[in-house]
Simulated scan of single mutants.
Amino acid sequence: MVNRHLEVLEFASHINRYPDLKSLTADFSQLMSQFGLTSFIFTGLPSAGYDVAPLIVCDHWPEGWTDRYRDQNYFAEDPVGRWSITKRRPFRWQDAQKATTPTPIRRQIAGEAWEHGLADGIAYPLHGETSAVVSLASESNLSIDASDEASIFLAVSYYKSAAEDIERLSRKHDKPALTYRDIEHLKWMAAGKTAWETSCILSISESAVKVHRATVRRKLGVATTTQAIAVSVQRGIIPL
């Protein structure tokens, strides 16, 4: 047991050695496997009704699970997903599930997760300038103690910070050339304002707002307002 805690400290103390997300994630994955955590996801947390996909930084779930989860819009009903938004401390999946009224769809989510090798897990919500979660899973009932949870939290925190730094550097040269006005429109879009409401706020015509929104979507390479907001949050252009 002591060895894996020391390895977490080793991982944290050499976090700046990783040149890319692939090598960082490989070592993090190997480290987590020593705690019985065989898969995980690191993702930003979407606002209600938004797709989580553009916010995913690293998807290390079993093959097929993420697509199934998204296709069925499970996030809206998943107790673990909902707790990730509201909680400020790490929590066990089973605590979220027990505290939520069971419904057929929630039982279906838990059953299908089990079939994909996600029997039990622990989630680490990370709230700051942006909100994210690193959720880790075990193929069987999870057996970790308080010292394990603390070590995992340390590794998760360093992993998140390093992954974000790597992603930020990789996007530095391909970030779209958005103007101050573009970002202003994005912020009002993210706030849920309609084109008409934005026109009143900015004292311009509604048609001008629509044209500007179309320009922003083109610059970001997306087709919808929802996608524009998600991509902008993921790239750090606007806060969540």
Rank of each mutant, 00 (worst) to 15 (best):
F35W: 09
A53R: 15
L169R: 14
L220C: 08
E149Y: 00
I201N: 13
D174V: 10
T198N: 09
K160T: 03
W83L: 12
D59S: 10
V133G: 00
D182L: 06
E184S: 12
G44S: 07
L126M: 08
A119W: 10
F42S: 05
A26M: 10
R218K: 13
A26K: 14
H60A: 13
R70T: 10
F91P: 00
R168K: 14
A191G: 09
L178G: 12
I183A: 04
A214S: 14
I41D: 00
V80Y: 02
A195S: 14
D67M: 05
C200P: 02
N73L: 07
V133F: 02
L186I: 10
V80G: 04
A76P: 06
R92W: 05
I166F: 05
E149Q: 15
A12E: 06
S47I: 06
V8D: 00
L186H: 08
S147E: 15
P79H: 06
A53E: 15
Q234M: 11
S39E: 07
A137Q: 07
T103P: 05
S138M: 04
W196A: 09
S232C: 06
E115L: 08
E112M: 09
I237Q: 12
G36H: 05
A177K: 15
L154F: 01
L169F: 14
A228W: 06
W196Y: 08
Y69K: 08
Y159K: 00
G221Y: 08
A195Y: 07
T66V: 07
D145S: 09
L31C: 03
K87P: 00
P125I: 08
A177P: 12
E112N: 09
G236E: 05
E112I: 11
R168V: 04
S135F: 04
R92M: 10
Y18T: 00
D71P: 09
S147N: 13
L21S: 15
Q234H: 14
I144R: 05
T215C: 01
G221K: 14
K160G: 01
I204R: 11
Q234R: 15
A191V: 02
Q34H: 14
I15H: 06
K160F: 06
A132F: 05
T226W: 10
F35M: 05
L154Y: 01
P54I: 01
A113H: 03
A191C: 03
R88I: 01
I152P: 02
I122P: 02
D174L: 04
T226F: 13
R168S: 14
S203R: 13
Y159I: 01
V209K: 06
C58M: 12
Y159R: 01
G121N: 06
A208M: 07
R106F: 04
F40A: 07
L37Y: 01
I122A: 09
T224V: 11
V8H: 02
S138T: 02
